[in-house]
């Protein structure tokens, strides 16, 4: 695959969370859709401000839990009732209450894996390379700086207009980001 070249987007830097949130809201109001915001900690309302709503994680975790629980019970039942029936203390072979602890643990285990792997997978992580890392000041995004990017693939993207627009949002610095 040929490496992509050219412009990825424009990145604006903000000094505090409030100005980033305000800027994000005004960007979406202005009609930009391929927008992302970067901050050193989660800011409430920021994802919604850039037009992101449901993460789709709950369904995955529920699915993981159900499969884990049923699978765990099936494992106990198949092993101790079908494949290797062993009479223990005269109890019925399908002594289901004794299979509940393991079924429960399996449900929690698979649901947790679904939560973690689902979160990473939906976020597209691990992704060691990303164009925003090309901006030298972006290493402050994990400390105390806040960034907003508008990408080239946005239908409304026009280089000069976007730069001017971001400048107008009280950004301290506006940089072009290359692939």
């Amino acid at each position: 695959m040929k490496p992509r070249t050219g412009l990825y987007g424009v990145l604006a830097e903000f000094p505090d969370p409030q100005s980033l949130l305000d800027a994000a809201e005004r960007t979406t109001t202005a009609g930009y859709t391929n927008v992302d915001a970067y901050s050193p900690f989660p800011i409430h309302g920021l994802a919604e401000a850039i037009g992101f709503h449901r993460s789709g994680l709950s369904q995955l975790v529920l699915g993981g839990g159900v499969i884990g629980g049923l699978g765990g019970f099936f494992m106990c039942w198949y092993a101790n009732v079908v494949s290797y029936p062993l009479n223990s203390g005269g109890k019925p072979l399908n002594s289901w209450p004794a299979f509940i602890p393991i079924a429960f643990e399996c449900a929690v285990l698979l649901a947790s894996f679904a939560a973690v792997l689902g979160m990473l997978g939906l976020n597209g992580l691990p992704m060691p390379y990303h164009p925003v890392f090309n901006v030298p000041r972006f290493d402050q995004a994990s400390r105390d700086r806040f960034f907003l990017s508008i990408q080239v693939r946005d239908p409304k993207f026009d280089h000069d207009a976007v730069r001017g627009f971001l400048m107008g949002l009280n950004a301290t610095e506006v940089t072009d980001v290359d692939w």
């Binding site: 992302d36 901050s39 920021l46 994802a47 992704m127």
Partner: peptide
């Protein structure tokens, strides 16, 4: 893992 603090990621 390439974490970059994106708002969608944080969400």
């Amino acid at each position: 893992l390439g974490w970059r603090g994106s708002a969608k990621h944080w969400s």
